[in-house]
Design a protein around this nucleic acid. Sequence first.
DNA 1: AGATGAAAGGTTATAGAGTAACATAGCCGG
DNA 2: CCGGCTATGTTACTCTATAACCTTTCATCT
Lengths: 171, 171
Amino acid sequence: MEHTPIACSHHDHNHCISDALEAARQLCIGRGVRLTDLRLQVLELIWQNHKPLGAYTLMEMLAKANTRRVAPPTVYRALDFLLEQGLIHRINVLNAFIGCPSPTIKHQSHFLICRSCGIAIELDQPALSQQIIGVAQEAGFVVETQSLEVSGLCANCATGADAHSEHHHHG
Amino acid sequence: MEHTPIACSHHDHNHCISDALEAARQLCIGRGVRLTDLRLQVLELIWQNHKPLGAYTLMEMLAKANTRRVAPPTVYRALDFLLEQGLIHRINVLNAFIGCPSPTIKHQSHFLICRSCGIAIELDQPALSQQIIGVAQEAGFVVETQSLEVSGLCANCATGADAHSEHHHHG
DNA sequence: AGATGAAAGGTTATAGAGTAACATAGCCGG
DNA sequence: CCGGCTATGTTACTCTATAACCTTTCATCT
């Protein structure tokens, strides 16, 4: 579980993490909210993965990093803050959390989730959001939030790697 | 909690329940699977509401109806069966379950969920499913299941009833 | 009818996810 | 330095879900 079989392994992940963290800092300054050490640490741990991370996994990581026990409320409060600020999304189908690459732009939570490698890919499709709003409107329904979670196989896992990677992911 | 402030309260709910149960019986006969007493009872309890029902609520209802204790695995196994047969859907955002009005037709799980009255309205929009598949395809993603959960206010709660029903539903 | 094997349900215990309530520590304006 | 606010620590608990094992039910074969 140490190494991460990321689908888009060609990208500079360290760079993508530091970009996200810097963006988060700026965003919090701009809004006058406090991105404390704990919150930053949680956000960083989440960004080290492209896979959604459970609160309890996160807790263990925090405990290890800080060499002391970390209780659930600690991590949940940090997650609540990050969710409120739009810095992370919650993946309901997995009870897990993932970093948001565009926290400054208000948008809905639309994800492709690979059942083989576990990666979660955020969609950026305002047209889809709009169509969903339209469909809801026909029913007189006023949309506040959308959660679209599409499960299946990502490009990597679907092409050939599929048959092999179903039962063992160690490449 | 005895009476149900259903949005579409004009419909003949008893009829709609018995229809659903009869359809379920036929479907199971056709597929050669067993709709046992327990499974039927769970399905009936779920259909008595248009609101998603949690597994533990269901457990209590079962315990009351059968005047004996019912343990979690009992209800979860029944739910698993009903999910497999497409007779119910799971609403992830609520950890709850709701009856499917068209179990014979393979389709995705698309819902409008009212945060005020709790009703869940299933969408029947093959075009939306198709658009989602299309968007996924552009990313090389092979779709297996879709879960769309739109939260907001239903037609009833949005129109005037809104301001009042936010904090107390006993209308 | 009786044997038998698979599927369904019962029971106990426990894992996993999330929150309530209260205590303490850090920060910031007066 | 004080008072109040925000963030975090701590304990305990609730809610959701599953593992493992045992017993019952039921369809089928003989």
